[in-house]
Amino acid sequence: MGDIFVLAEHRMGEIRDVTFEMLSKGWELAEEAGGTLTAVLLGHGVDGFAKKLSDYAQRVLVVEDPLLENFNAELYQMVLSHLMREYKPSLTMIGHTGFGVDLAPALAVELGVPLATDCIDLCFRDGSLVVVRQMYGGKVNAEAVLRPSESYIVTVRPASFEAREAGAAGGEIVRVDSPLKGEVDYKRFVRYVEPPKGEVDITAADIIVSIGRGIKDEKNIPIVEELAKALGGVLACSRPIVDKGWLPKDRQVGSSGKTVRPKVYIAVGISGAFQHVVGMKDSELVIAINKDPKAPIFSFADYGIVDDLFKVVPELTKKIQELKAS
């Protein structure tokens, strides 16, 4: 077993959490298999990052280049394939993020290296890489083995592993000359666009009642809105509701929306795909109402009701109103 590469993901001056989660898992794998853990850092003006990463890995490979200031999958791919050919890591870990999904499949095809995406766990077993990933919106876990190879790439789902505390790994910082010859003319980073500030800040709410696909129709939304009102809370939602244009983007909870930690989160007609759960799992109390008893949301809830939301929610609203009046 040789090197394990972890690609550091950073954006707008911050190393993203998934990097430390992968370093933590990478450390464990390297210890088991007797390999070394290498953090790979591409960017511009990233000395501070390199120093920080050296606390978590035995080596930090740094490629400094003004062309790498912002993420551009094409340029990142050129640099990474150069490093992977040179250092021949057994495993390269990349976050399953907006950054990783744009990069990993092309890199794997270019190098002819097997790739498994969106992994929630991984290990080496009898020399083969075995991964766990989810299918059918998180309703099923799949254990899969990758085709035997000298080198593998995985993308790792954020929040799958606990990030370790910073150790004193005392990693050696190794600077590698950038192989880039210049800007590519076929793909150019223009700018970032921040999400618009909405009228309601759901991250500040103590009580959130959130709707998902189970609401079926826009005209049913007031049924749940009534409950939110009775509780003095705010109405939020999962992605499909925003995609359909039924609620504005600032109400969306999940990886591409907001992360919330209210005192109580009531999920109504939300199945609980990872992309949603990651945005609400740290709520103090989670209540789920869904008619599918196997909906993944129940495994993140403290209390569950397996029934038709259109029967339960109006009853609950009534009970809350009665309690408030008494």
Binding site: V131, K139, V140, N141, A142, E143, V145, D302, I305
Partner: peptide
């Protein structure tokens, strides 16, 4: 011709055991 071969599927173990009312 694939990178991945599925070995087995299973229901994800619950993170929490919700009390079902």
């Amino acid at each position: 011709g694939s990178w991945l071969r599925i070995q087995r599927l299973y229901t994800p173990p619950p993170k929490k055991q919700a009390t079902i009312l």
